[in-house]
Design a protein around this nucleic acid. Structure first.
Lengths: 227, 227
DNA sequence: GATCCAATTCAACGGGTGTTGAATCATCAG
DNA sequence: CTGATGATTCAACACCCGTTGAATTGGATC
């Protein structure tokens, strides 16, 4: 009485789906739900294909996420590395502000990766931990180098812990991207973009006063209008 | 041939488990896995009882978490509220530092609640969002009041956004509690407790220089030895 | 000892998950 | 047209989840 257990006609609408579309869908779903909660079925639905197809292009859910990392971090690293070149003699304030802009540009649309950076995954998926570290460490090392150059050039206080200063600078930037656009519009009436803009400006102003040898040094102009 | 479908002897070792033990177990498991990933079965295992017993004492997983909130936040609020009394005429630096100490004292052993504050849950469980807001809002409001008093008394820069300053202060404290004890021991060789201690000291030093009208005002002494 | 009640466990339900093997389709070479 | 090959889907497996109702226990009361 149940439906006949015979092989039925299969595969009705096989429109081509290339791996990039799957990555896009994965990014969208991971962004909303995080790695753990995001389901392959949801990603497949988003990409307009069958969950099994994901396994044709990627080895596992973890590998899919890994591929996502690979398409985001190298760009950040490249720009920050270039910025940390010690032949760059611009004021430390300008260069550190540029760090925030780079973070903003690459990560503003990717809460999935941000939530991973902030440790949601670090605590959960053990296998990914070292992979994440591998991707993040070089980036923060470059930022740290900028701080150290600033100290050596007499622009920043000589009594700083470069590691901690770097941590403070970039960590708060991530929190600004994550929290302010959600919270600030409810408390003051601001559009989310403006919340991030004001947050970044205020944060850097406070940060710079904290680390500069001469806090009255002129600050960079506000973020790009693109923000 | 399968085992007889008859009622079998049930309930072999009913040692008493009071609700507090369940809350303790829940706190431990939520701490490691977060609300979403933590399973009632794991909590029950941890508490040495059956998952169903949890439903005897609590209405649902959500209610269990709610009870956990109720055991943590009121203490923080009480202390911060007391601290924000406008008859407290101690220097703003001392009072804001006390804010960090209160956060440290109440939250250092509770990564579960911290990860909730930081938004892991805010994005996920819709029902809990407003509940969390209800608990957190009054606390940050008190801190904000301290900032505003500091501005009014001419101790803090008059051009500050009290809301953002408050956000920066407490948000970074949470990140310090979460991240530094894990990361710093791997980079420099420090015991986790010392990492938090140095992190707090360095952060408040930077923060204070950033917000104070006269950053050379004497800073409070380092954290309690209890830390 | 019998009765009652609160505390606890058992077993199952329905649903969601990551993953896989076999079946189907689309397309292009010969 | 035939075959081969890569892309895609179907259907299922085994597992874990939150939750529930009925069964069982331990202990106090009568």
């Amino acid at each position: 009485m149940p439906s006949a257990p015979h092989p039925r006609p299969r595969g009705p609408k096989p429109t081509r789906v290339d791996p990039d579309q799957i990555l896009d869908a994965a990014q969208a779903v991971f962004a909303q739900d995080g790695l753990r909660a995001a389901s392959l079925r949801a990603i497949a639905r988003h990409a307009g294909c069958d969950p099994a197809l994901i396994y044709y292009h990627f080895d596992s859910k973890e590998a899919l996420f890994e591929a996502l990392l690979g398409r985001r971090f190298p760009g950040v690293l490249r720009e920050v590395k270039e910025l940390s070149d010690d032949r760059d003699l611009r004021p430390a304030s300008v260069r550190l502000w540029d760090v925030l802009l780079i973070y903003h540009r690459h990560l503003k649309d990717d809460p999935g990766i941000r939530s991973m950076i902030r440790g949601e995954i670090v605590r959960g998926a053990e296998g990914l931990t070292h992979l994440i570290e591998e991707q993040i460490r070089p980036i923060t090392t470059c930022v740290r180098r900028i701080v150290e150059q600033g100290m050596a050039r007499g622009e920043l206080r000589p009594d700083l812990q470069p590691l901690l200063v770097t941590f403070f600078l970039v960590k708060m930037q991530l929190e600004i991207l994550d929290v302010l656009p959600v919270v600030l519009p409810r408390l003051m009436d601001l559009p989310p973009d403006e919340a991030v803009r004001i947050g970044m400006k205020t944060w850097f102003d406070l940060f710079w006063r904290g680390v500069a040898l001469d806090p009255s040094a002129p600050l960079p102009s506000p973020p790009d209008p693109v923000i």
